[in-house]
Amino acid sequence: MDVVTIGETMVLFVPNNVGPLRFASQFEKTVGGAESNVMIALSRLGHETGWISRLGEDEFGLYIRQFIRGEGIDISRVTYDTAYPTAVFFKERQAAQDPKIYFYRKGSAASQMTPEMLDEAYIAQAKILHLTGILPALSPSCRETAYRAIEIARKHGLKVVFDPNIRLKLWSKEEAKEVLMDLASRCDIVMPGIEEGEILTGETEPERIAAALLRNGAQAVVLKLGEQGAFYATPEQQEYVAGYPVKQIVDTVGAGDGFAAGFLSGLLRGWSYTEAVRLGNRIGAFALTVPGDVEGYPFWSQVDPNAKAQILR
């Protein structure tokens, strides 16, 4: 197993028309969830991935199970709940703007995850544990689950990669900062967006955000900068890596997860941080070109059918 992750995936409804949801009458159904988004993108890039979660034993849960398993992801450690439902969310499309997102996830099956549900041997076989800041925001037991997963990963020598993925609809800015900075201090690589970095550190410049997170305990920081690309820093080096131009942006949701997958793919291939970040930028750019969270993620043959030299130009 290359990468294992833990988190909630929901059924996503996207209206066919642009404008307020109250005027929408027809929707496309798909799935969305930061952690499974990353695993889907990694699977398409040729890596073995596993997703740990809890779904409602309902039609939406069955749909998610089929969808994610169909992407080649191992779901053998997903459990099912008869008392709590699978969550859903809606995307409101807006012309020339980022979409608005409406979540219906309170009391979901995934929020009932506990540390006891984690299979230590299953996590131990992976090379990387990928976590986001969404899991600890879902419930107190999910927060305990995140800490326990990191504990298992560190015990068995996995690299722990943490994307804060701050969702202020789930908790306050103050609570998010306290918990996520503590979690980040236990992880090897921290990869926030620029606004998330500002929330966590109080700094506004990429170099200062990265320095604060390195002092907090991370071995490396990768800061997502949107169309400007990304900035990474370790105690030994730092660099801005330019993004890939996209002629027409259709949907920004899922781009950050695509970046994370590309970056992790580069690390798994033994590439340098510069090379891995550049690949992250490219995969993130693919995600911008179509509606939906995962529909734009490419297969490896679409990225570079020959060798990494093409990617690094």
Rank of each mutant, 00 (worst) to 15 (best):
62 L>M: 11
295 E>R: 10
67 F>P: 01
297 Y>C: 11
191 M>I: 06
271 W>A: 06
304 D>N: 12
235 P>R: 14
261 A>T: 09
120 E>N: 11
253 V>P: 09
264 L>R: 06
267 L>M: 14
167 R>W: 02
198 E>I: 10
58 D>A: 05
290 V>P: 00
128 I>S: 03
8 E>I: 12
288 L>W: 11
159 K>N: 09
180 L>K: 05
210 A>E: 08
212 A>H: 08
61 G>D: 05
239 E>I: 07
139 S>I: 15
140 P>V: 14
245 P>T: 06
139 S>T: 15
265 S>H: 12
208 R>Q: 14
80 Y>C: 00
75 I>M: 15
222 V>G: 08
257 D>M: 00
233 A>Q: 14
239 E>G: 00
35 E>R: 04
44 R>M: 07
66 Q>S: 13
211 A>S: 10
244 Y>W: 14
180 L>F: 11
306 N>T: 15
258 G>H: 03
210 A>I: 08
64 I>W: 12
166 I>C: 07
130 H>S: 07
114 T>P: 00
303 V>R: 12
258 G>P: 10
157 G>M: 12
27 F>V: 04
282 R>M: 15
213 L>V: 04
32 G>F: 03
304 D>I: 01
206 P>L: 14
301 S>D: 15
305 P>M: 12
122 Y>V: 10
59 E>V: 02
167 R>P: 00
300 W>C: 06
198 E>G: 15
249 I>D: 02
107 G>E: 11
54 R>I: 08
283 I>N: 11
203 E>Y: 14
303 V>P: 01
184 A>K: 07
75 I>H: 01
290 V>E: 13
91 K>M: 15
184 A>E: 02
141 S>C: 09
66 Q>C: 04
210 A>R: 05
96 A>Q: 15
208 R>I: 10
12 L>K: 02
88 V>W: 02
191 M>N: 03
14 V>P: 00
88 V>G: 00
5 T>Y: 01
71 E>F: 01
